[in-house]
């Protein structure tokens, strides 16, 4: 599956507090959470992100709190996947659990600039930068995480686990 979109380049160690400040964690409504996404990082960023755009970030994206509201808010902005040099572990689990694919590539982060048009091929583990012609390899999505995505996230995975046990 290939996803094409415009890159929004962020820095290293983007934490869940700036992705969705705790003061907004009084709702589970994805649209409401999206309204405040990245507010403390850059108050103008959210308005510039269009559905289909892709976040490209540095090391340790999503560090900090376990709030699943963070990937929910990003997904609700219409972001189909996130490319980063690396991800913080709870954010990594949460994103796959809600069906938001994450792609790890430090080279892509180094090579892609803000505003570039990029293609992310999830299954091939490849990222193409159409603005420069650059091509980057990403760490393959682990089989287990792929199965989670295929099941539509953790809810589908639990249904499958239970069905398996009944057999």
């Amino acid at each position: 599956m290939t996803i094409r979109g415009k890159a929004h380049k962020l820095g290293h160690h983007v934490d869940t507090d700036v992705i969705i400040p705790a003061r907004y964690l009084v709702t589970n409504d994805p649209a409401e959470l999206a309204r405040h996404c990245f507010e403390d990082l850059d108050p103008t960023l959210r308005a510039r992100i269009r559905p289909g755009d892709i976040i490209v970030a540095g090391e340790n994206f999503g560090q900090g709190s376990s709030r699943e509201h963070a990937p929910i808010a990003i997904k609700a902005l219409g972001v189909p996947c996130i490319v980063a040099s690396s991800f913080a572990r709870i954010f990594y689990r949460n994103a796959f659990n809600i069906g938001l694919p994450l792609v790890e590539s430090a080279d892509a982060y180094a090579g892609i600039e803000d505003g570039h048009e990029i293609d992310v091929d999830l299954s091939a583990g490849r990222i193409d930068d159409h603005s420069t012609g650059g091509t980057f390899v990403s760490t393959p999505i682990p089989d287990f995480m792929q199965r989670l995505l295929d099941a539509g996230g953790i809810v589908g995975y639990v249904h499958a686990q239970r069905a398996q046990r009944k057999q």
Partner: peptide, 12 residues
């Protein structure tokens, strides 16, 4: 963990 993981752990 996040909330969905916790839900799965509560379930299973």
């Amino acid at each position: 963990v996040g909330s969905s993981d916790l839900a799965a752990a509560m379930a299973l």
